[in-house]
Design a binder for these strands. Structure first.
Lengths: 201, 201
DNA sequence: GTCTATATCCAGATAGAC
DNA sequence: GTCTATCTGGATATAGAC
């Protein structure tokens, strides 16, 4: 086998792994880890159940990889947002709008939220998954910093910034769930309603 | 067997059923329907696995009964709130405070939320459970009516009342989830933060 | 009513042929 | 790489003894 073919094969393998991940994300989000059968995933991907083990060594491994992926995306987005040359208010507005828009345009965004929720709430998930969700506090910290800055410059209300960050995240999480439940019927609420948490308008 | 004994036996049976329900609620909320094994429930209740089938004919039946119970409690609470002789603002304040307080004092309140979420999100739940969660819209309608009244009397902001009801419910739902995740560490955020969704303060 | 034993089924994972 | 066949374990539900 020439190096060229080797490279091509690797690419094909990666693509197949991508397909598996993508199908698993939807299934895990809509059925939950325990209720999603390995055959559900193989059927959705159009391969035999045995072949799936050629790409991943267990159902848990797929779940963990997706969870890690989801977390990384969120943390990157949060840190990216924080570093933009914007006022705190503009940052919060942008976060809310981007997320609501993301929910509407691409179901994957909301699916990742559902995965993280599962991993956070449920006890019966792999240890490695539990480890990943512990980093949740990082996201709270980013938002808390932005809120504190917004209070310093006088634009934000003066409640405990940690409380405000909790309300911020739990509200968006609640909306992600609502979006997943509504499916195609989802219509995002006016972003200004949520911004009322932070400022007088 | 005298009627007196019959009555007593019925009572004992009801109590045992109550214990099973109570343990199942916690387990279903924390592990999910699919990952909760019938032996988990019997162990928690301190009875043999076989005996459980004397009280309920399947795991699904227990789940459905709990779901129905949770819904009835919420709808009763919502309708009760609506009929109180209070202003719309007072009603909303009361709803938020009572719920946050309920989350803190009694984990069952949040567990019911988690059950309803599972039933709403997951596809792999019994048909009868799906039917129950369809009545969710009733709760939205009650809050929408209160919001509309608050807009008429000029105290509430003038966004689409349906959007505001969505934000209201999804926020509280998000907080219920957060509470369940935090467990004993849960400290409810200042209720006034949420009230900022509705009014200028 | 309560338990232990067991029938039945199904799912995760592996083995081996092509 | 891909499939079919199979092993193994575990979970639901039932049966039957006490």
């Amino acid at each position: 086998m020439t190096p060229r073919n080797k490279e091509l094969n690797e690419k094909v393998k990666d693509e197949r792994r991508e397909q598996i991940l993508s199908n698993s994300l939807r299934l895990f989000a809509k059925k939950g880890l325990a209720a999603t059968k390995i055959t559900d995933i193989s059927k959705a991907t159009g391969i035999s159940q045995g072949l799936l083990y050629h790409y991943y060594k267990s159902k848990d491994e797929i779940f963990i990889e997706l969870l890690r992926e989801g977390y990384n995306k969120m943390i990157e987005a949060a840190l990216g947002l924080e570093s933009l040359p914007l006022t705190p208010l503009e940052k919060i507005k942008m976060a809310i709008e981007k997320l609501l828009q993301g929910f509407e345009e691409n179901k994957d965004t909301a699916y990742y939220y559902l995965l993280i929720n599962q991993a956070s709430i449920f006890e019966a998930i792999p240890d490695e998954a539990k480890e990943i969700v512990k980093s949740r506090s990082l996201l709270h910290e980013v938002i808390t910093r932005i809120i504190t800055a917004g209070q310093k410059d006088g634009t934000f209300k003066n409640y405990d910034p940690k409380d405000m960050a909790v309300v911020f995240w739990t509200s968006l999480n609640g909306l992600a769930i609502y979006n997943a439940i509504q499916g195609e019927d989802f219509k995002p609420p006016d972003a200004n309603i949520l911004i009322g948490i932070f400022i007088e308008d």
